[in-house]
């Protein structure tokens, strides 16, 4: 009886190990598929079903990176994203991702409406063998810049496809990044992010309204203990000598 119990316990332990191994292997497969932009959901892809909630966020560091990879024709290439005037919209797509299909179709439209007229679209796939070079090349619409670069996916911390990053090449900063279920949603989010970003950068450069400048000046003066009733604020300008600039021509 004791022997049977020991044998049974051993069998249960072995079965538990097997189940654990299978679950772990399953999780690794799902993670690998996700990295490759393939979802197990019916609609597939990173963004989930059409109409599903979308997301757009600014990255923690906000840094932009140039892209080095291979063109769909197999040519080594460097695409300039930083240090250039204008915006670059990086579209991280895969040939095997079903949610990406709507974006491949949208980008083939001749009158594609980008978030800003100064924007260049660059489609970024992963290196082979994660991405099929042939399938990717067949999907790239004529006239659209495309590159295979897993390094770019890492640089922009891409969780899966489809995924988008809008980069301001003048300031070498990421305007926003995220994903959506279709191009209309994505474009609207990018426009909003761009609007916020432009306001932010203008504020950083001090290009704010006169009222904003007045408020900041008041705050700075108040911090220095100078209020609106301070004698120096309403002092009449001196007309005698001292601080009044002299006209050099008058001395001649």
């Amino acid at each position: 009886m004791a022997l049977a119990l020991v044998l049974l316990s051993c069998a249960v332990a072995v079965l538990a190990l097997l189940v654990f191994g299978l679950l772990r292997s399953h999780a690794e497969i799902i993670r690998a598929l996700h990295r490759a932009g393939i979802s197990l959901e019916e609609s597939g892809g990173h963004a989930g079903r059409p109409g599903a909630p979308v997301e757009l966020h600014s990255p923690p560091d906000g840094a932009a990176h140039d892209i080095v990879g291979v063109s769909p024709g197999g040519s080594p290439t460097k695409i300039s994203v930083t240090g250039v005037r204008g915006l670059t919209l990086l579209a991280f797509l895969s040939s095997g991702c079903r949610t990406c299909e709507t974006f491949w179709t949208a980008f083939a439209e001749p009158d594609l409406d980008l978030p800003d007229p100064r924007t260049r679209l660059v489609i970024v796939g992963q290196d082979a063998p994660v991405e099929s070079e042939t399938a990717f090349a067949e999907l790239v619409p004529p006239g659209v810049k495309a590159v295979l670069s897993s390094a770019a996916w890492q640089d922009y911390d891409v969780p899966g496809s489809p995924y988008f990053a809008l980069v301001d090449g003048t300031n070498n900063r990421l305007v926003g990044s995220g994903t959506a279920a279709n191009w209309d949603q994505m474009r609207n989010m990018l426009r909003t992010a761009l609007g916020d970003y432009l306001l932010e950068t203008e504020a950083e450069r001090g290009m704010t309204s006169g009222r904003d400048r007045e408020r900041r000046a008041d705050q700075a003066l108040a911090a220095a203990g100078i209020g609106r009733d301070h004698p120096s604020v309403n002092q009449e300008p001196s007309t005698s000598d001292g601080d009044t600039p002299r006209n050099p021509s008058a001395e001649q």
Binding site: S75, K78, I79, S80, G83
Partner: peptide
């Protein structure tokens, strides 16, 4: 290829 430059070898 410095920053601001683009290049392609084919």
């Amino acid at each position: 290829v410095p920053t601001g430059w683009e290049a392609e070898l084919s």
